[in-house]
Design a protein around this nucleic acid. Structure first.
Length: 504
DNA sequence: CGTGTTTGACCCGCGC
DNA sequence: GCGCGGGTCAAACACG
């Protein structure tokens, strides 16, 4: 990736804290009485440059040469980062006062640096553990609720207040949950319904756990429907209901493009084309050819209403390393599946919260049309689109606490601002937004990256990718529902883009 | 000749 | 059971 390129960062709340990554962060942490915020600020540990080191880290590394041996290697889990350095002072005894000071400072810096690094690693491990646990929980949840079908057709007449569960989305029964309030649903008119099925957990537990590995490996590896025998990893009768259709999760990206394809960095082989759904434009089917047996497929079709809109739908996870431009989209597909499952918090409260959140995302649409749970990212809408969240409380409940304030909306502005204020500021800078939107829409690489960033962001999934992948979505840790924090950086063929409050 | 595309046929799931 | 539509296969074809 072009290291001299532009950098675009979607700033969410707490972004200004990341503007100055480095030592100052834990100083702030130590003075903060809120124990949830420091956790999120720890994200700064990873606001690194492409070599994986932040500037402050580089500086500290220089200073710390030769002093690391003085550093206490234990991790201060209490985050008391301003601890006494008396031990270091003793070592510095007998030298000139200046040298003493220098030694003390060096020692302290070194210790802080080490502590910083260790806390960062701890955070990564904690985040990973959380994700693992969440994945296990999400896999188990559909089983837990199996058999207790609650149909709420009567309560859900208003399709603008959709109620969603992953169980529902995974269900192949006809249903439709469309949250795109700016455009009419592409899907049919079926009334949304909530299906909650309770469970025989103990009966199926071993089966679920047995299937987890294949789910983690890639959603297509649990393929159950007919398809290429080469790709078929398991037989239908081996599937666990409720887990099966995880492979069906899709990510659809709508973008204006004259090109027949969105260049996403992957190699695709066309294996079919069909006229579908009354669309005068044929739908093309592509398969990833970067590795033998890669299960990822994509469909490309032009919008029937507007031929300039290209709809690209991705399905599956790559089973091979990807070039940076392709990584963004690859992460999108896996993130999509995870997000769909994340809605399976079976309590009514959780579901309602999720539905409350989605109207904040005019460009994000969830639907199960065509029997597949699909996340549609609409990158075609202009900045003047009526902001749907004005009609809804500007709250960002978990797990989708990172609002994808990305495209075509005034939400580029600092996310710590209230929603209304964000809109006002956004209108003030409409020209900037327009420019950026146009740039993004015109660049297929950027479009793909934005799509990936958007999904990853509003999923709230901690996603830390090293510099080689050029996509860094580091939202606040789960568990901080009222602190939507994420900072999205991504790169495209044209370079690395950075967008945030500094746009103003 | 190898690779990718085109295109008609086929399979499967779903609704009626 | 039948028809429809989505998705895939695979032979034929095109191209470098």
């Amino acid at each position: 990736m072009d290291q001299q390129g532009r950098e675009l960062v979607f700033m969410h709340s707490g972004d200004f804290l990341r503007q100055n990554p480095g030592v100052s962060d834990h100083l702030n942490d130590s003075s903060s009485g809120d124990h949830t915020q420091p956790t999120i600020k720890e994200v700064d540990f990873f606001s690194t440059d492409r070599n994986g080191k932040s500037r402050s880290e580089h500086q500290e590394m220089k200073i710390n040469i030769g002093s690391s041996s003085l550093v206490d290697s234990s991790i201060n889990t209490g985050l008391n980062l301003s601890t006494s350095s008396s031990g270091i002072s003793k070592i510095a005894n007998g030298k000139e006062p200046n040298n003493n000071k220098l030694s003390v400072l060096r020692g302290e810096l070194g210790r802080l640096h080490d502590e910083n690094m260790k806390l960062g690693k701890l955070l990564v491990q904690t985040t990973k553990s959380y994700k693992d646990l969440q994945a296990q929980l999400l896999v188990a949840m559909p089983k837990q609720t199996q058999g207790c079908r609650v149909e709420q057709k009567g309560e859900l007449n208003d399709t603008r207040t959709p109620v969603m569960s992953a169980q529902h989305l995974m269900d192949h029964r006809p249903s439709d949950i469309t949250l795109d309030v700016n455009e009419p649903s592409v899907s049919d008119d079926k009334t949304p319904e909530l299906v909650v099925s309770p469970a025989n957990i103990m009966e199926k537990k071993s089966q679920i756990l047995g299937k987890r590995a294949s789910i983690d490996d890639g959603i297509d590896q649990t393929s159950h429907s007919r398809g290429s025998p080469k790709l078929e990893q398991e037989k239908p009768d081996e599937q666990v209901p409720g887990v099966v259709s995880f492979r069906k999760a899709r990510v659809s990206v709508r973008a204006r493009s004259e090109a027949p394809l969105i260049s996403d960095g992957c190699q695709w082989r066309k294996y079919g084309q069909k006229m579908a759904n009354g669309n005068p434009c044929p739908r093309a089917y592509y398969r990833c050819t970067m590795a033998v047996g890669c299960p990822v497929r994509k469909q490309v079709q032009r919008c029937a209403e507007d031929n300039t809109i290209l709809i690209t739908t991705y399905e599956g996870n790559h089973n091979h390393p990807l070039p940076p431009p392709a990584t963004a989209m690859a992460n999108t597909t896996s993130a999509a599946a995870a997000m769909l499952l994340s809605g399976s918090t079976t309590s009514r409260e959780g579901i309602s919260s999720s539905s409350c959140f989605y109207p904040c995302l005019p460009m994000a649409t969830l639907s199960t049309s065509a029997s597949f749970p699909t996340i549609t990212l609409d990158l075609t809408q202009g900045p003047n689109t009526t902001m749907p969240f004005l009609r809804t409380p500007a709250t960002f409940p978990l797990p989708l606490h990172g609002c994808p304030q990305l495209l075509g909306n005034p939400m580029y502005v600092g996310p710590k601002l209230p929603a209304i204020l964000s809109v006002q500021l956004g209108q003030r800078h409409a020209s900037v937004v327009e420019t950026v939107t146009a740039a993004i829409a015109s660049d297929p690489y950027l479009t793909a990256a934005v799509a990936a960033a958007a999904i990853s962001t509003f999923m709230g999934t901690p996603r830390i990718i090293d510099g080689s992948n050029n996509l860094s979505v580091v939202p606040g840790l789960p568990g901080s529902p009222h602190l939507p924090q994420s900072c999205t950086t991504f790169s495209t063929k044209e370079g690395c883009y950075r967008l945030g409050s500094d746009l103003q």
